[in-house]
Amino acid sequence: MARKKKKVPEINASSMADISFLLLIFFLVTTTMDTDSGITRRLPPPIENPDMDVKVKERNILNVMINKYDKLMVNGKPSQVEDLKDITRDFITPKPNNETAPEVEMKEIELIGNFMTNKGVVSLKNDRGTSYQMYIAVQNELAKAFNELREEVSQQYFRTSYSNLTDKDKIDAVNKAVPVRISEAEPEEIK
């Protein structure tokens, strides 16, 4: 006697789409696509003996101060945030034959060769009452100035935009040619 084949009824798959839709909507709602971005900085290591001052020549310093009313002072003169980029840009551009501009130093950099680097340091000071918004605005302007110079170096030596550089050695070379030298003062009260 031939065994009767038991027929398994076919599963109805028409609700599959509904189920997957439900899942899709769940993930659509819970997803957050925000990639975190921001201004990256390196903090200096703590000072071991506070009495030892590092002497930096005055021509090598760009003094940027923000007071508690969010007013800006650059090298002793009241200034606007909008102008800060150009001032910084001017300051960090190497000018070998200028006695008032920061000193320059010839450096041998891989992939670039001999490059004239600037020894200027931007010194940033802020009051405890300065708003974070203003502080970031200033940091942003400073970063803009450094990025512009890097862009220029990158165009000159590698014929591409700095942001398009993918080779790590090339990025390092540009970073060495234009180091971001922003020194933040030890906290103190400024009037």
């Binding site: 921001g38 990256t40 290591p45 009452g129 906290p187």
Partner: peptide, 30 residues
């Protein structure tokens, strides 16, 4: 991640603490 209206005093205190424990890599989220 800091609100734009926070005063720098608090931020500076936090940064000092980070320096003390060697967390030098920071990122100001914007």
């Amino acid at each position: 991640k800091i609100d734009e209206n926070v005063r720098m005093g608090l931020v500076t205190d936090v940064k000092q603490e980070l320096r003390k424990c060697g967390a030098f890599r920071i990122n100001y989220s914007v």
